[in-house]
């Protein structure tokens, strides 16, 4: 197995984790899945940095592990009650969610090849574009605030992948984005605290 195949295998695992996150019903499991996804992404970046002798990428990978994989999951998990298995998400038919996710995956792969073709093909960019759609779908299709926030984290992982596929942003900007997302996470945990599901209020219509 050559280096490119190893990297492609990691991208495939990231995409699989996104599908798994769509189908999972226990919030605690879902947090772990997205955490694994972030670890896989950071492993990819560290390997890329190590093989390409790019020290900035290694730093970025380490920061993703610390800030996104570890801290994010710790903060979100702390908001789940002491009996995490009770925290089960209610949503429509899981089979339909699965079918729509896979259709979106195919759609995003085709769209990426059409839209981004002038930039040349990069597996990581393609994977990032697919993950972006999966994140948006997770936000839009769920009422659970936890799922919605995890969808947002997936979106941010997708942006890192897209950035690697198109052009790596300067490290200062990448790090600031990570810190920004962390700040948003802390704010979100305050908003999640009492009611874990999104609600409809009469005064918020019209």
């Amino acid at each position: 197995m050559n280096t490119q195949q190893i990297l492609d295998l990691i991208i495939a695992a990231i995409i699989l984790s996104a599908i798994w996150a769509q189908l999972g019903t226990f919030i605690s499991h879902k947090i772990r899945i997205v955490s694994i996804q972030s670890v896989l992404l950071s492993v990819y970046i560290i390997l890329l940095g190590y093989w390409g002798n790019e020290f900035e990428l290694i730093i970025l990978g380490i920061l993703i592990i610390i800030l996104r994989a570890f801290l994010t999951s710790r903060i979100l998990s702390s908001k789940i009650s002491s009996t995490p298995f009770i925290f089960r998400e209610r949503f429509g038919d899981a089979s339909w969610i699965g079918i729509i996710s896979i259709l979106m995956l195919i759609f995003s792969f085709i769209t990426y090849r059409i839209l981004f073709s002038p930039l040349g093909y990069e597996t990581i960019g393609d994977g990032g574009f697919a993950l972006l759609f999966q994140g948006i779908f997770l936000i839009g299709s769920r009422k659970s605030k936890f799922s919605q926030f995890l969808g947002y984290v997936e979106e941010e992982n997708a942006i890192v992948m897209l950035s690697l596929g198109i052009i790596s942003l300067p490290l200062m900007i990448e790090v600031s984005v990570l810190l920004d997302v962390l700040a948003l996470l802390i704010v979100s945990t305050v908003l999640i605290s009492d009611k874990p599901d999104s609600q409809v209020f009469e005064e918020m219509t019209g």
Binding site: K145, F149, Y152, I192, K195, M204
Partner: peptide, 13 residues
Amino acid sequence: IEAAWRYVVIVSA
């Protein structure tokens, strides 16, 4: 709280 949540999620997305 619901309004703040919608603000955070929609704008960030």
